[in-house]
Amino acid sequence: MVTLGVIVLFRLGQSLPAPYVTVRAPEADHPLRRLLDLLTGGGLSTLPVFAFGVLPCLAAPPVLRGLIVVIPRLAALRAEGQAGARVLTRYRRRLTVVLGLLGAIGVLGFRGQDILDAHGAIAVVCLTAGTALVLRLAEVITDRGFGDGVRILVLVQVLAVLPSEFLRLYEKTGWAAIAVMAVVTLSVTVITIVVAQGQRRVPVRYAKRMIGVRAYGGTSTYIPLRFPQANSPAVLAAVLLSLPVLLPGAGWLGWLRDEGNPGRIAVYFVLVCLFAFNRAAVTQDMDKVAVELVRVGGFVPGIRPGPWTAEYLDFVNRRIIGFGAFCSGVVALIPVTGLALLDVSPRVPIAGVTLQVVLVFLVSVTLDTTRQAQALRLQRHYEPFLR
């Protein structure tokens, strides 16, 4: 109920017009318009109170990670454990609000509205406050609801702009769109679930220790190695392929605008695989895992502790993320190919990315909700025994 209530408030904020804002008709054929509608729920077209949706919440963590690399103080906070994590969380919230402020100033200034007068200042404050309120709504879902709040709100705003896209698709191709969308949905769902649920279990044993007259340790467990799911590689690839079209004198790159072009599809597949592999390789550090195993007295059978264990885990993990990156490319390729068969890419720019993000988000959010519901059921089942 908390999650549903927050979703209703979020959609209300995306429908409530901001004061003193001049609304103009959007450019229907702009190559990046569909992607902006995907990230903001169509808010940049009408500029409601929640005009930016969860876009600042999505942009703040990567910006903060970049600042951690540059600023030594932030790197020291990350190494302090939970205390440093709480401070970084406060910095992330403030950075989200700052990005909302900069976005409000940039959008209103781009539309030719004077932000220095009273009406312009009120509009900027209203849009910035909307960004802060969206951040709070996402945290409420994360703390008291089911799943990650940012991901659920992204799914909500994507589903808000998707019906019009499907209606346009149906008007152009008829019942063929229903058959192709059914095949695409089933394929993407199956592959996403298989990759998300799959794991490689590396066996680990712990050495026995004598404390007094009792022996401790000697148990066996495993390290689950997974491929981290993400939609960012597909979005980054789509943006990267759309940017050359906006450059002056880049008419020879016009084939990148058509999603049905075989060359664009091949480049898109390669970029998604590379981005997915790079993201997974950066987020998983096997050296830390090996150091932690040495600290607690664990070892992989047949592998010497220390650098040799890290090398073995990295050897296994790179093959897992290589296969996962290939599956991410296939998942990104299925909607693009299906829409190319329907020949709708000139009318619906980057529709394949929109469809893939919707399906993957729907599957991932469903899996997370199922896990949380199962954990809650087990917690209540065993609660009488823990008293």
Score class of each variant (00 low, 15 high):
residue 177 A to R: 07
residue 142 T to S: 13
residue 136 R to V: 11
residue 149 G to T: 07
residue 181 M to D: 10
residue 168 R to A: 13
residue 154 V to Q: 11
residue 160 A to P: 01
residue 156 V to L: 07
residue 162 L to K: 09
residue 166 F to I: 09
residue 181 M to E: 12
residue 144 R to Y: 12
residue 138 A to W: 01
residue 172 K to F: 05
residue 164 S to A: 14
residue 170 Y to M: 06
residue 156 V to I: 13
residue 174 G to M: 03
residue 153 L to P: 00
residue 171 E to L: 08
residue 180 V to F: 01
residue 150 V to C: 07
residue 157 Q to H: 03
residue 139 E to P: 00
residue 150 V to H: 05
residue 177 A to F: 04
residue 153 L to C: 09
residue 180 V to S: 03
residue 183 V to Q: 08
residue 175 W to L: 11
residue 184 V to Y: 11
residue 179 A to E: 12
residue 149 G to I: 05
residue 170 Y to F: 13
residue 179 A to T: 13
residue 159 L to C: 15
residue 139 E to D: 10
residue 144 R to M: 04
residue 176 A to W: 13
residue 148 D to K: 10
residue 157 Q to T: 08
residue 149 G to R: 10
residue 164 S to I: 03
residue 161 V to T: 14
residue 166 F to A: 08
residue 148 D to L: 07
residue 132 A to H: 02
residue 144 R to P: 00
residue 183 V to E: 08
residue 161 V to K: 06
residue 165 E to A: 06
residue 145 G to Q: 06
residue 132 A to C: 02
residue 137 L to A: 07
residue 164 S to D: 11
residue 143 D to Q: 11
residue 179 A to F: 12
residue 172 K to E: 14
residue 141 I to V: 12
residue 154 V to I: 12
residue 136 R to F: 09
residue 175 W to D: 10
residue 167 L to G: 09
residue 156 V to E: 08
residue 167 L to D: 11
residue 184 V to H: 09
residue 183 V to A: 15
residue 136 R to W: 15
residue 139 E to G: 04
residue 145 G to W: 06
residue 143 D to M: 03
residue 136 R to P: 00
residue 176 A to Y: 13
residue 177 A to T: 15
residue 159 L to W: 06
residue 177 A to E: 11
residue 152 I to M: 12
residue 147 G to M: 10
residue 132 A to E: 03
residue 140 V to Y: 00
